[in-house]
Structures are given as C-alpha cells and as structure tokens.
C-alpha cells in the first residue's frame, strides 16, 4: 500500500468528519442535564451523597453492546436501614434510563449485576434511595472502543 502517513491521517480525519457530519436518523444522545433531571426526580430534589453505594464497571468495554455492571449498597437491609431502589443511568446513551433495581428486606443484600448497552464512551451513574429518605450516588466512566472488524 503506497499511502504515506500524512495521507492516511487525512483520510482518517475525513472519515471522522464524515461521521460527525451527522447520519440521517442517528439518535441524538441524552445530555448530562437530562441525566441530572432524572436524578433530581428520583431523589425528590435532594443532592445525593457519596459513600455506601459502589458502582463497578469496566474501565474499557471491549464492546459497548454488552457491558457488565454491578452495584452494591452498604446496608443492614433490616428495620429503617433498607435500600429501596437503585437507579442506573447512562448520560451518553440516546435515553439515559437503563434500569431501576427494587430491593426489599428479603433481598438480604442490596447488590445486583446486569449487562448494559453503551452507545459511546460516557459516565454510568448509580443512585440509591434508602427507606429513611437518604440518597447516595456513584459514577464510573466507561470507555467504549470501536473495533476494526465488522461481520
């Protein structure tokens, strides 16, 4: 192949520009503002605290179609110390909603694992709501790579 580095970079840049120029019908991505709105609705306007809730997600997802995520909240899951819900949001997806986990005392532990879709590199956010009304938040940035090989 007799294309030098500069030409190659030019072609690659052209490809990026072409992609960025907009594809008909490609869904717009959710905005961080929209995500913040979802969080406010979920917490009733409270600013969630950090700590107690841990979101685990890979730093780099090999394919954005199937990204494993886990959440766990420190809680006795008895009496007043019960986690009621944990909401998962993805601020760079076409729609930020991913899932809401509903726990009960019968859960024993407030932990869950699932697999999710990420349209691009973005922040994944988890927000927990406790029975006593307190709320917690954690977030992780997941880099989504784009492989060279379709098929």
């Amino acid at each position: 192949m007799t294309i030098n580095r500069r030409q190659a970079l030019g072609l690659a840049a052209g490809a990026v520009a072409f992609a960025a120029a907009g594809l008909p019908g490609r869904p717009a991505s959710a905005s961080p503002e929209e995500t913040q709105k979802r969080i406010a609705e979920f917490t009733g306007g409270k600013t969630p605290e950090t700590g107690r809730l841990t979101l685990t997600a890979p730093e780099i997802a090999e394919n954005g179609n199937t990204v494993p995520i886990s959440i766990e909240v420190e809680s006795a899951m008895e009496g007043d110390d019960v986690v009621e819900q944990v909401m998962i949001l993805a601020e760079g997806n076409p729609n930020p909603d991913v899932a809401v986990f509903n726990f009960s005392e019968a859960s024993g532990i407030a932990a869950a694992t699932t697999r999710m879709r990420l349209a691009k590199t973005q922040n994944v956010i988890a927000v927990a709501k406790m029975k006593d009304g307190s709320t917690f938040i954690d977030q992780k940035e997941v880099k989504v790579t784009i492989g060279g090989c379709g098929g």
């Binding site: 294309i3 190659a8 052209g14 992609a19």
Partner: peptide, 12 residues
Amino acid sequence: IVGLGALLAVAT
C-alpha cells in the same frame, strides 16, 4: 471509509 482509515493506521 472509516474501515480504510483504521487499516491504514495499522499499515502506517
């Protein structure tokens, strides 16, 4: 085009 860019990146 994107594919070509990627492959050239490997080649160059």
